[in-house]
């Protein structure tokens, strides 16, 4: 009997010590980790519009400088109107969309939308940049996922992400179609008229591809009012306003 009590008390003591140690480490290192994560997200935004190259390494300060100089973060309502900051704080989830604008010489070059998708094992987070014509993909990145390394994990690789460049989210008649991930190579699996809307899939990761396709379609559909705004009449688009006044 005393043996059992000894075991239980030892186990409890052990849990306590390990628990305290890990909690201390996690809370102590959290600010640094948060900073790293923010810098990583900013870097991924820059990747989508080719302001940073995947082949080079940058210090967090360099990333912040490039980011702050070129990228504006704004929030718009689901209808495509610019949301006031107060509205944003009201916290109507799903009502307010975040977009990032890349402006050069006072003109919006790209708008970047955050991607949040279901994956096979967990959420996939990334960014997709679209050209200011509102229909062409300029870049795509993934910065956080829990897919299997070597299979679904390939979504974080350059070759996969580069496939997205130049793809169209609308068909020839102007209807919204999003971008899908093919099962295999696009030129073998997809009829020619649909090729602009498909990217090469990853072998061994059919499910990851399927989930990500769904996620992309859902996200792009939510941002469709913004895209429509860019597609229709760029100059009178209300998105222009904050940057115009900012330039003057």
């Amino acid at each position: 009997m005393s043996e059992t009590i000894k075991s239980i008390s030892f186990a409890l003591g052990m849990c306590l010590v390990c628990g305290i140690l890990l909690t201390a480490a996690a809370t102590g290192l959290q600010p640094r980790q948060e900073k790293n994560r923010l810098s990583d997200r900013q870097k991924n935004v820059l990747y989508t519009v080719d302001l940073a190259s995947r082949d080079k390494t940058y210090t967090p300060e360099q990333i912040r400088d490039i980011y702050e100089k070129n990228i504006d973060e704004i929030r718009v309502s689901a209808a495509g109107e610019i949301a006031e900051p107060a509205e944003d704080r009201a916290g109507q989830d799903g009502q307010v969309l975040t977009i990032y604008l890349y402006t050069k010489n006072g003109e919006i070059q790209n708008y970047i939308i955050p991607i949040e998708s279901q994956g096979l094992w967990g959420k996939i987070y990334g960014y997709m940049a679209l050209e200011n014509d509102g229909s062409t993909v300029a870049g795509f990145t993934v910065y956080e996922h829990s897919e299997t390394p070597g299979l679904g994990g390939e979504i974080e690789k350059q070759w996969f992400q580069e496939n997205f460049e130049g793809k169209k989210i609308v068909d020839r008649t102007g209807g919204f179609v999003a971008v899908q991930i093919a099962k295999g190579d696009v030129d073998k699996r997809v009829p020619e008229e649909k090729e602009p809307h498909y990217v090469d899939g990853i072998s061994g990761a059919t499910l990851t591809g399927r989930y990500l396709s769904e996620g992309l379609e859902k996200t792009l559909a939510r941002y469709e009012p913004v895209s429509l705004c860019f597609r229709k009449q760029r100059l009178s688009c209300r998105l222009q306003e904050p940057t115009d006044s900012g330039e003057k």
């Binding site: 480490a25 640094r32 980790q33």
Partner: peptide
């Protein structure tokens, strides 16, 4: 205690691994 030694060993190892992981995430992201 002999009867829970594997669990204790694993608890020690797991804690150390998590420490290493947290450290890498903070300093070598």
């Amino acid at each position: 205690p002999g009867n829970i030694r594997i669990i204790v060993e694993l608890a020690v190892i797991a804690s150390l691994v998590i420490l290493a992981d947290e450290f890498l995430r903070a300093y070598y992201f």
